[in-house]
């Protein structure tokens, strides 16, 4: 089955053709057009500009993705329906509906967060071959807009265990990078600075570490970094790596502590780390370590699939193929607040 994936929920326009069958899948074509350079000067995604750029590049990208093959070779169209920026979502959804109608191909709407969960399937052939052995899976989703700990019992069967009470983990990275005057996006900036820093140099708070339950908090950590900088008045350049490394360590500690607690309570058979912040090396290493200590399979998406991409949307669409329909083009709605548990 060939699945055309379309993703435009934020600032990446992405298209993919996934060749999928039981136990085997590979991305035939995969394109991501990033707008990060455009949004950098604003310190974040600008919705109006993002929407306009999606409109500009979507059709040329579709042509590139499909190549000389007829579009009718596609068996299923999967598109991100939410959550995300309303102005960005509508471009992809409208395109998908039009294609579904014109080509008479079934359409399925995908939840963006569920899509991220399926990014773990990309490049992990063992997981694709024998998925059942990895269920239940404990999934940590971390990105600029989300921080969620989810128990995945099977395809489409999710329990939200915990989430951030305030800022997303990726948002904390962005805001601290801005406090350090280091630009956007904050994740790669902090991670690079932290490489040469001492993670134990400054004892930043680990909010909500002691609370029961799985909710997390990163707002107070950001404020603590701010006060640290203000108290010192002048920060010597040499200290920046220590600040970055200590901040990053605090984020990793909070995320891993909640993950470990969930492992103990729910006894999952595998551990997945997905979302934009899953590109963070310290976090990848920490989770891999936890997994090997507890003899759990650890599934990490390839670095190129950690950010928003249509490959993961196509995979999620494939597992939801039973819900696809030829009539959905009439009724599929984009929803910027689409709830995660479907």
């Amino acid at each position: 089955m060939k699945v055309l994936g379309i993703e435009t929920s934020c600032d990446e326009t992405s298209l993919a053709v996934l060749d999928a069958r039981e136990g085997e899948m590979h991305l035939e074509k995969y394109i991501v057009s990033s707008q990060i350079a455009t949004h950098r000067e604003y310190g974040g995604v600008v919705p109006e500009i993002a929407a306009r750029m999606h409109c500009e590049v979507l059709l040329p990208l579709l042509q590139k993705t499909i190549g000389k093959k007829p579009l009718s070779a596609v068996d299923l169209i999967a598109v991100t329906a939410g959550p995300g920026l309303i102005t960005s979502l509508m471009v992809g959804v409208q395109a998908a509906k039009t294609l579904s109608y014109a080509l008479r191909k079934p359409l399925v709407g995908v939840n963006h967060l569920e899509g991220h969960m399926y990014s773990a399937w990309l490049g992990n052939s063992e997981l694709v071959r024998d998925t059942e052995r990895s269920f239940p899976a404990l999934v940590l989703i971390v990105s600029g807009g989300h921080t969620e700990l989810v128990l995945m019992r099977g395809h489409g069967s999710y329990t939200l265990l915990g989430q951030t009470a305030d800022d997303a983990a990726g948002e904390a990275f962005d805001k601290v990078a801005k406090l350090l005057d280091r630009g956007y996006p904050g994740g790669p900036v902090i991670s690079k600075l932290a490489q040469h820093g001492n993670p134990a140099a400054i004892d930043f708070p680990r909010p909500m570490l002691a609370t029961t339950g799985y909710d997390m908090s990163f707002s107070g950590l950001k404020t603590a970094v701010r006060y640290y900088l203000e108290k010192k008045r002048r920060i010597p350049r040499e200290e920046l790596p220590d600040i970055a490394a200590s901040f990053q360590q605090a984020v990793v500690d909070v995320l891993t502590a909640k993950t470990v607690r969930a492992i103990d309570e729910f006894g999952p058979r595998s551990l997945m780390l997905v979302g934009g912040v899953s590109a963070n090396n310290a976090l990848r290493e920490a989770l891999t370590h936890i997994g090997s200590e507890r003899q759990l399979r650890v599934w990490l998406p390839a670095l190129e699939h950690t950010g928003d991409n249509a490959g993961m949307i196509a995979v999620a669409g494939y597992y939801h193929r039973d819900e696809a329909s030829l009539k959905l083009w009439r009724t599929l709605r984009f929803d910027p607040h689409l709830a995660f548990i479907i």
Binding site: G44, V45, P47, P83, G84, L85, G144, G145, Q163, T164, A165, D166, D167, A168, G170, E171, D174, K175, D215, S219, P336, H337
Partner: peptide
Amino acid sequence: TVVQSPTFVLMKV
């Protein structure tokens, strides 16, 4: 429901 920071999406309803 938990009120999270809307920084990333600009607006939550």
